[in-house]
């Protein structure tokens, strides 16, 4: 059993290793978490996830760019792969379910994958449909999984026009499904015009927005 000081050292090490995209260090420290009986959930949330949250800030401040963020993401997943099987009980419960994908006509998925990662690390069950996803597929997957959230991504001005269509299709089948949109040409104004329930300007904000959307659902007794 690790002492408090050692536990702090490991969590800080995980945080730093994600920020420094040091995948080997993440693996080493994640194994130390297990060997020294540190709580895996704490290691994920206060080490890996906290580190990734800081990476989001670094991206927003133009200190990190996509190549660095992708490396951080790889480091984070290396840790998650080791730690996640050791979550138990309530900690392993999912925070919610999200269907995610880049809409039909759009093959750009870097942004979508980063949002997916943030949902993963936040403890959501993610149903990733990939890119250039037929609109009907979003509807089917939401119904099949009963996901609270559907997250739609688009990079192109042409493909963003698929968003209001798919929002309408999903809402027609399940008015309680919460839909969030994001991507380069999307703004809060566009999201509002499209009838989306949420908008995230970047990956870090997406999870926060999703959690708020689920809270709204729960307040209404629908989740």
């Amino acid at each position: 059993m690790a002492t408090d000081a050692r536990k702090k050292e490991i969590l800080k090490g995980l945080y730093d290793a994600v920020v420094d995209f040091d995948e080997d260090k993440v693996v080493e420290l994640s194994n130390a978490v297990l060997a020294e009986d540190v709580d895996a959930y704490e290691a994920i949330m206060d080490g890996l996830a906290a580190g990734m949250e800081h990476v989001g800030d670094l991206y927003a401040n133009q200190e990190y760019f996509v190549p660095e963020v992708l490396m951080c993401s790889d480091a984070l997943y290396a840790g998650l792969d080791i730690l996640r099987p050791h979550l138990s009980g309530k900690e392993a419960d999912v925070k919610g379910q999200v269907v995610i994908g880049t809409v039909e006509g759009d093959v750009h998925d870097i942004g979508k994958n980063l949002v997916k990662m943030m949902f993963d690390v936040a403890g959501f069950e993610v149903h990733d449909l990939g890119r250039d996803v037929k609109l009907e597929k979003f509807v089917e997957e939401q119904m099949k999984t009963d996901s609270e959230i559907v997250a739609l991504s688009a990079l192109m001005t042409t493909s963003m026009l698929a968003m209001p269509k798919v929002i309408e299709m999903i809402k027609a089948r399940n008015p309680d499904a919460m839909i969030m949109v994001g991507g380069a040409p999307i703004s809060q104004e566009v999201a509002d015009n499209y009838g989306a329930d949420g908008y995230a300007p970047n990956a870090a904000n997406a999870v926060q927005e999703a959690i708020q959307m689920i809270s709204r659902l729960r307040e209404m007794g629908k989740a």
């Binding site: 039909e104 006509g105 759009d106 093959v107 250039d132 192109m156 042409t158 493909s159 698929a162």
Partner: peptide, 13 residues
């Protein structure tokens, strides 16, 4: 090549 109503240019597959 672009075929659907949501596409406007070729993409690499």
């Amino acid at each position: 090549m672009p075929v659907s109503e949501w596409e406007q240019a070729p993409v690499v597959t």
